[in-house]
Write a protein that binds this DNA or RNA. Structure first.
Length: 482
DNA sequence: TTTTGAGTTGTTCGA
DNA sequence: GTCGAACAACTCAAA
């Protein structure tokens, strides 16, 4: 077998054919390419993919394997130790170069280093490409050479670097090795949890590169125009829905950047509105920038002053939050949307996070873990940044006195109550005036709408006004103690 | 080195 | 009902 020249392409979170620098480089060698995906959750530390992510991964690999077959190739699946698996394949095929896409999470960087060391011992080179960020975390620095801790100057520095390169096109053919190695069946990886919840959320996933591309096209042709106005409205589909596709690399941020910018620069309706959308791409980069330089932020507050916060340990309260039974309709709608669909609107994510942290005073890590398990777009960098932002303990975080009001947010961003009525159907008959605050409705009238608090729908589990005061007082103490 | 301007996403209170 | 101010200084980044 060793007479044939074969290079290995090690797939990670780059589950696409188009604009894939690692795959492009592997093909450019002119040799046969052996694509392999290795399922190795034990190499992810405390952040192995959660349930929703595993469902997505399963579906995405299934589609990608078909796409490879259509190009005369295959997707080889393995599980276990990445370094040993790659070493064994290199050994069997006499391979001297392995191509891969970099992942920037702390454990993934460690994994890459292990693989590199293992292969180096056998004179195999690991060639690594950035296909997942507009700028690698260490490609952007302040004039003093430090990492940025505030988004706007970071963003300005990125803009100054100029436009991202044009995306690569997808290959038309992938030269196959004469003989294929053994591959696990997708089912052998046991990615999909055995739980009835899976069938529910699976209907809401838009898995795979082809669907991602369609979503991108539709969004940049149309909805992006109204993105600045509608992105905060959970009752309207004003967001792109591309987050999970970017996480798994079914799309590259560079493709998204160019699709969004093409619209901005041309067309009779051209207006700069999609700048707001492109900024979001850089927020994603910024999250990786922070995670790269502050690798303990998934666990620890970036601002140590917040470490002694007197968190409440209350499993029952946590469970009520998780199940959408807090008694605050906007919060409950969000939590139920998450559970039902594997996604929650970003505006609502902030509100439910603020409620967990500041109203219930439960540790933001508990929230981060729940999101990690339930979100199709669970992403360590984004998740850590987001939770620390709401908690006030991260880089460029919300000021501590900013506490979201769960019902005025509902009134403002779900003005007709469509979102709440969809996800909290027991309140469907309650009029707009009381929909976000059913406890303010006279009980007799509420009963006429089919609701008695404590029966069909819970009483509010805390008094928001009181909870807010308590949280602010604690933040004051922390500040004084510093 | 010092100074200066600025900072994703909010709420409440009082005029 | 609407609007501006206060919330609380602090840290960051660049000039």
């Amino acid at each position: 077998m060793a007479s044939e020249s074969v290079v290995i392409y090690w797939l990670r979170n780059d589950l696409r054919l188009a604009d894939n620098p690692a795959l492009t480089a592997a093909l450019a060698t002119g040799h046969a390419v052996l694509p392999v995906y290795i399922w190795s959750p034990e190499e992810e530390g405390d952040w192995a993919p959660g349930a929703a992510s595993r469902v997505w991964l399963h579906e995405s690999l299934k589609r990608l394997a078909k796409a490879y077959e259509a190009l005369g190739s295959r997707l080889v699946l393995r599980q276990g130790d990445s370094a040993e698996t790659l070493h064994a394949l290199c050994d069997a095929y006499g391979t001297t170069t392995v191509f891969t896409s970099r992942r920037y999470e702390p454990h993934a960087l460690h994994q890459e280093a292990r693989v590199r060391d293992r292969l180096k011992g056998e004179d195999v080179t690991l060639q690594v490409f950035n296909g997942s960020l507009l700028n690698a975390p260490d490609a952007v620095a302040t004039q003093a050479g430090d990492p940025y801790k505030v988004f706007t100057p970071y963003y300005n520095a990125c803009v100054k670097k100029g436009e991202p390169d044009e995306p690569f096109s997808a290959p038309q053919k992938i030269p196959a090795p004469k003989q294929w190695p053994a591959s696990d069946a997708l089912a052998d990886l046991a990615l999909v949890p055995d739980h009835s919840w899976v069938e529910k959320v699976r209907q809401h996933g838009t898995f795979g590169e082809a669907t991602a591309q369609e979503l991108l096209d539709t969004f940049t042709d149309d909805a992006i125009i109204d993105y600045p106005e509608l992105r905060d409205r959970p009752d309207v589909s004003g967001t792109s829905g591309l987050a999970p596709h970017l996480h798994f690399g079914e799309l590259s941020p560079r493709q998204v950047w160019h699709a969004a910018s093409a619209y901005r620069l041309s067309g009779e309706d051209a207006r700069p509105g999609n700048e707001a959308y492109i900024r979001q791409l850089y927020w994603r980069d910024f999250a990786y920038h922070l995670l790269y330089y502050f690798p303990n932020t998934p666990e620890e507050p970036l601002k140590p002053m917040f470490a002694p916060f007197p968190w409440v340990e209350d499993d029952e309260a946590l469970q009520r939050w998780q199940r959408g039974q807090t008694g605050y309709p906007f919060v409950d709608a969000g939590m139920r949307e998450l559970w039902e669909t594997g996604w929650m609107h970003n505006r609502v994510r902030m509100v439910v996070a603020s409620f967990l942290i500041k109203d219930l005073r439960i540790h933001w890590r508990e929230g981060a873990q729940w999101f990690w398990d339930c979100l199709f777009d669970a992403d360590l960098a984004n998740n850590s940044l987001g939770w620390q932002w709401v908690a006030g303990c991260g880089a460029d975080a919300a000021p501590y006195f900013r506490v979201f009001n769960p019902f005025s947010q509902g009134k403002k961003f779900d003005p007709d109550g469509e979102y709440v009525r969809k996800w909290v159907p027991e309140l469907a008959q309650v009029p707009d005036k009381y929909l976000q605050t059913p406890w303010e409705m006279p009980p007799i009238e509420l009963a006429a709408c089919g609701v008695t608090l404590g029966k069909e729908y819970p009483h509010p589990m805390v008094d928001h006004g009181e909870a807010r005061k308590t949280a602010l007082a604690i933040y004051d103490e922390l500040k004084a103690a510093k």
